[in-house]
């Protein structure tokens, strides 16, 4: 547990250290590794709150985000610290006055949970293949949409809110096997905000 806190803290401080770079207006020709946006998310199986930098490609149709998530014991019954890699495709982009909408988003995420209670490779006590999934690494499929606009009063080039329907691996497996039990339980909801630099 102590080690996972250390790693989580280290990642958080790295993200904070990167902040001055990201806060500056994005310059044309900035190196690829400089993030062009940041996201803050509520829920979605990766923590109560998750935050981190993101990179957009192909005229903002493709986005990649790295989020550090946290859920406190007081709310989630145990402390959870996660590191999530999220990839998203926004095929449509509609603008109306200063508003811009991305009505349909499809994506995938891999979320790693820190801690000794979870495994990435099967512990020695099991024969190979004993469990076919990894409790530390959670794949998920995402469906969503977003709406945003510039907020000059806050000095933001673009602020958007988004929602995501999150289908984690265990929900997908149980839904395919047991549609009448799972029903809409295939998805949970995540809400979030993105700021473009």
């Amino acid at each position: 547990m102590a080690r996972s806190w250390l790693v989580g803290g280290l990642l958080a401080s790295m993200l904070l250290a990167a902040h001055p770079v990201r806060a500056a207006p994005r310059e044309a020709g900035a190196p690829w590794y400089v993030p062009d946006h940041a996201a803050l998310q509520f829920a979605g199986s990766i923590g109560m709150l998750a935050a981190g930098p993101g990179w957009a490609f192909l005229d903002e149709q493709l986005e990649l985000e790295v989020l550090v998530g946290w859920a406190p014991r007081a709310v989630a019954g145990a402390d959870f610290v996660t590191l999530t890699l999220k990839g998203q495709w926004h095929p449509f982009h509609v603008t109306h006055r200063e508003w811009s909408f991305r009505p349909f988003t499809v994506g995938a995420a891999f979320s790693y949970t820190f801690g000794d209670d979870y495994f990435l490779t099967l512990p020695d006590r099991y024969v190979s293949g004993y469990y076919w999934f990894k409790t530390a690494l959670r794949p998920a499929l995402l469906l969503g949409g977003s709406a945003g606009r510039p907020v000059p009063s806050l000095g933001l080039r673009h602020l958007e809110g988004y929602y995501e329907l999150v289908a984690t691996d265990y929900r997908i497996v149980q839904f395919l096997q047991n549609p009448s039990t799972v029903k809409t339980g295939l998805f949970t909801l995540a809400l979030g905000a993105r700021v473009r630099f």
């Binding site: 829920a43 923590g47 709310v75 989630a76 145990a78 959870f80 949970t113 959670r138 995540a190």
Partner: peptide, 9 residues
């Protein structure tokens, strides 16, 4: 909302 797959609440 789900905060974590193993949330206890």
């Amino acid at each position: 909302f789900e905060l974590h797959p193993y949330e206890i609440r």
